[in-house]
Computed example of a mutant assay.
Amino acid sequence: MKISIVTVCWNSAATIEKTIKSVEAQNYSDLEYIIVDGQSKDSTLEIIKRYPHVVTKWVSEPDKGLYDAMNKGIRMATGDYIGIVNADDTFSDVDTISNIANFLKIHNVDASVGDIVQHREDGQIIRRYSAQNWNPEKLKIGFMPAHPAIFFRKELFEKLGYYSLDFKIGADYELITRYFLKQQISWKFSGITTHKMLIGGVSSSGFSSYKKVSEEIIKALRMNNVPFQAWRIKSRIVWKVFGFLKRK
């Protein structure tokens, strides 16, 4: 079973090497690694070129944003399943892809759903984002599993479509809604912690992005004709705070 990993980057010289080394360290042999760069102006490309033994394919050209770049990488992929690792994140350990591949071989589902941990720049882990109690119905109230922790069967993108470019930060939510709720793909929780993610991404910048995220969640649900109550989407922060305090 071939696993394709896609990294999208732009001016990521400060972090991209750590991400590449994380892929290099994986002990799974049938692994394809694709990097899609948005024509970086810093030394990102110089770093990528140092690792021809790790990076199977790469491209550097202008794009229409994050999700356009993801779509490019997915179209370039030749694996049976596709996973994402962001340019400032790493896999949780050297066995991550081996564990995912073994899980998918056993269960033969369209997608595996796992966990991630989030950390600060000093490496301190501040949150475990688990999908253990998640199910697709929770999309109707604004909750999805960690996007990078999902490994999708490649043919899903060809049959059900790619990331929509109509979203700034919510195309992952829309795609997950389309796949899991509307099309009801087969999936299973793996229990595998797949990634270590650096806090501070586009859609994880705290309360400043909360309103925009809520708007795009509502848009994603409407696009897929999913019944929902808008007030529950907008008030989901209450449950996030409650969950955080409970973990403390």
Rank of each mutant, 00 (worst) to 15 (best):
L160S: 02
Y162N: 02
Q39E: 15
F151H: 11
Q39M: 14
N86L: 14
A25F: 01
K18L: 08
V23F: 04
K219Y: 00
S4D: 07
E216D: 04
K211E: 13
V113W: 03
N108E: 13
V94I: 13
V109Y: 06
A171C: 10
K246G: 01
L31P: 05
V238A: 14
R153W: 03
W187F: 14
L198I: 10
P62H: 09
M144V: 04
K72L: 10
D30T: 07
G65V: 02
I218W: 01
S214H: 08
F228Y: 14
V117H: 07
E216M: 08
Q39W: 11
D89W: 00
Y28R: 06
M223I: 01
T7H: 05
D63P: 01
I84L: 15
P145F: 06
F157V: 10
S209L: 04
V59K: 13
A13I: 00
I233H: 05
K234Q: 15
E17W: 03
N71C: 09
Q183P: 02
E216V: 08
D68A: 11
I3C: 00
E61S: 13
S22N: 05
P136N: 12
I185N: 05
S190R: 07
K49I: 03
S92N: 14
N27C: 12
S4T: 07
E215I: 04
S12I: 04
K168M: 11
Y210G: 01
W10A: 04
G114T: 07
E24K: 15
P148D: 07
N102G: 09
I150F: 00
V6H: 01
A101G: 03
F189E: 06
K212R: 15
I47V: 07
E32Y: 07
K234H: 13
S190V: 03
N225T: 00
I20S: 02
A131D: 09
R247N: 15
P148T: 10
S186N: 11
D172Y: 04
F180W: 01
K49Y: 04
T15E: 05
W134F: 10
I82A: 00
E61L: 13
I217P: 02
I5Y: 03
H147R: 13
